[in-house]
């Protein structure tokens, strides 16, 4: 990623994710996230369509939305959006009102019982700022189901969509993530 002034974004391909949770572990290790809060979560979606069952996994964290409702709701101004689009929490300003957790449709802000503050994915901004790489979760994904880039880059991938079945309407916050939905194959 050469231009850090462009909105950064995640990319997720539901057809590639095996649910191994390597992304979750990489996030925990890289950011030293204690037991309890989960900055990234892998969830499993099950259903039935045209008489056939299906199941797939979704890896989600903060989507660093273009309209960060968490930052709008936060009364103490602890949540801000950087010029490269990364939404960060300044824990020294957080008062633990948890309004961000109510406002976020993606359950991204997590409460830390240890610090009494909110915390969430910071897109591994320390790595980006140091030029040592991107988000640890995406770089650790063994199947490349989870990737990262600028919003323009990930949106240009073939078949990428902003809306994704089980997720809230993208118009609410305009999340900086694009998806390749599961392609159901009938036997």
């Amino acid at each position: 990623m050469s231009d850090t002034k462009q909105q950064v974004a995640f990319f997720f391909d539901a057809n590639r994710c095996t649910g191994c949770r390597t992304c979750e572990v990489a996030c925990k290790v890289e950011n030293g996230v204690e037991l309890g809060p989960r900055w990234r979560k892998v969830r499993t979606v099950e259903g039935d369509q045209d008489g056939g069952p299906y199941m797939y996994h979704v890896s989600m964290s903060c989507n660093h939305c273009e309209v960060p409702v968490c930052a709008e709701a936060c009364p103490s101004g602890a949540i801000t959006k950087r010029s490269d689009g990364i939404v960060i929490v300044d824990q020294s300003k957080c008062i633990g009102a948890r309004l961000c957790a109510w406002a976020c449709p993606y359950d991204a802000p997590q409460f830390s019982a240890e610090t009494g503050k909110m915390e969430k994915c910071n897109f591994c901004s320390h790595r980006i700022d140091a030029g040592t790489g991107g988000p640890a979760c995406a770089e650790a994904c063994p199947t490349k189901a989870l990737q990262w880039g600028t919003l323009d880059e990930v949106a240009a991938k073939q078949g990428a969509t902003a809306e994704f079945g089980p997720l809230p309407d993208a118009d609410i916050t305009q999340p900086a993530i694009r998806f390749i939905p599961l392609k159901l194959v009938r036997s």
Binding site: A71, E72, A73, C74, P75, S76, G77, K93, I95, A97, L99
Partner: peptide
């Protein structure tokens, strides 16, 4: 600090 973000919160 709860009054800091009056402009949007």
């Amino acid at each position: 600090r709860a009054v800091v973000n009056f402009s949007s919160s």
